[in-house]
Design a protein around this nucleic acid. Structure first.
Lengths: 220, 220
DNA sequence: ATGTTTTAAGGTGACGTCGCATTATGAAAT
DNA sequence: ATTTCATAATGCGACGTCACCTTAAAACAT
């Protein structure tokens, strides 16, 4: 009842805004920022061009609002996944699953998110990438925290820095998800999170002593 | 002297072409395809705008030529790295090192390469992305071959599909390299390839039996 | 051989055209 | 009376063209 201080008018405006953003999202994710015109967005969202400019100062503003809101939402959901109950293994499993679900349910936004997060850091919009990446780095730290705490628990062996492991796990998920995005039939995202997790959990080398053991930590 | 069947004129044109491509590479990697004009490329390469159009049919053609040549070169070098001598561990190590070196020495091209390879598959240029990705998939198969052969040798334990492991390793490298690209000071690419390799080699779980052992291969 | 003319290819950059963001305007609606 | 709509107008920047210089090599003349 505190949050309900919006008048009917204001609530209407909110939904209008959302409709505009939704239309823009579709178009941007289909064709990319530069290949979408404001007129298209207006047409798709069934508003007049002038009305768009009542809500956003311009195309750039519209795009930024879109990205910011989506990113914030994703990071929030993923952070919840890893900060919930359970031991570290369960939390990592949940992270993998939630990440998959988020992708599946938000393909259009994900395309944009990936473009900003994993692109070449100049692509779509100067400045915005920096902002998004900082938020992402922050999230990676949360993820690293899970490994950290697993180390303290003795659940995990200290085979690397927790930040590296966080990067590793997240990039594994992303790699699988990008493959899935390209061709869902051919590269389904693993239903069992352990398929991904085991890439980190199970040692690949046959002999943990013998052949590899001696070379592992010899240098540097 | 068989290769020297180019006239002086033709050789000149080749260097001119290279100069144009070099200027374009700088600009594209600084600002992205859509934020660079042909006039800028002309200015930077110190040719007149009209001359560019003597060499390339248009901006798109120029960009494609650039990307194609760079990608081909990268894939070639990386394929050599994993197809050379040594056992599978050595070849993977060499891959990690070469990949790092390639990145370090080709930052501008790498930015474009990443945009095409790992972007959201709509970003820069329709059609081209598909082409590049196919070439990339082909490379991933080569990499998977290394794991495959490691399985046959008994050097690796069969903890997952070779293709997954290839994806995993490459995405690990990419993740570290992208971090490095953003902030070389803060996130140096590991000098010791084992830092990356061990993420796959060393099991993270404390007990390979106990807690995780029973759940590992239960489903699928 | 050396100077001169020819001529075709190379190189230039102002300019045309077009698409698009953004603004303006008057009618319609709520 | 304000918001939204429909449409047109404005302004800008980018691609790509083309008529015109410039160069250099070949043909010719001396």
């Amino acid at each position: 009842m505190e949050g309900r201080k919006l008048s009917r008018r204001q609530r209407e405006r909110q939904t209008q805004r959302q409709e505009m953003l939704a239309a823009a999202l579709e178009l941007f994710s289909e064709k990319g920022y530069h290949n979408v015109s404001m007129h298209e967005i207006a047409a798709r969202s069934e508003f007049a061009i002038g009305t768009l400019y009542k809500f956003f100062t311009g195309k750039e503003d519209l795009y930024k609002a879109l990205i910011r809101e989506k990113c914030e939402r994703f990071h929030q959901v993923l952070t919840e996944a890893i900060e919930g109950a359970g031991d570290e293994v369960e939390r990592l499993r949940r992270y993998i699953e939630v990440k998959g679900a988020v992708f599946r349910d938000n393909v259009p936004s994900i395309r944009l998110y990936l473009a900003e997060t994993r692109g070449a850091s100049f692509n779509i919009m100067a400045g915005l990438d920096r902002e998004i990446r900082e938020r992402y780095a922050q999230f990676l730290d949360s993820l690293a925290g899970v490994f950290e705490s697993g180390f303290r628990n003795g659940l995990f062996r200290p085979i690397g820095r927790s930040f590296h492991l966080a990067v590793a796990l997240d990039s594994l998920c992303n790699a699988f998800l990008v493959l899935w995005l390209e061709d869902p039939e051919k590269h389904p995202y693993p239903e069992d999170p352990d398929t991904i997790l085991n890439l980190l959990f199970e040692g690949l080398l046959s002999t943990s002593e013998g052949r590899g053991g001696d070379r592992r930590f010899e240098s540097h």
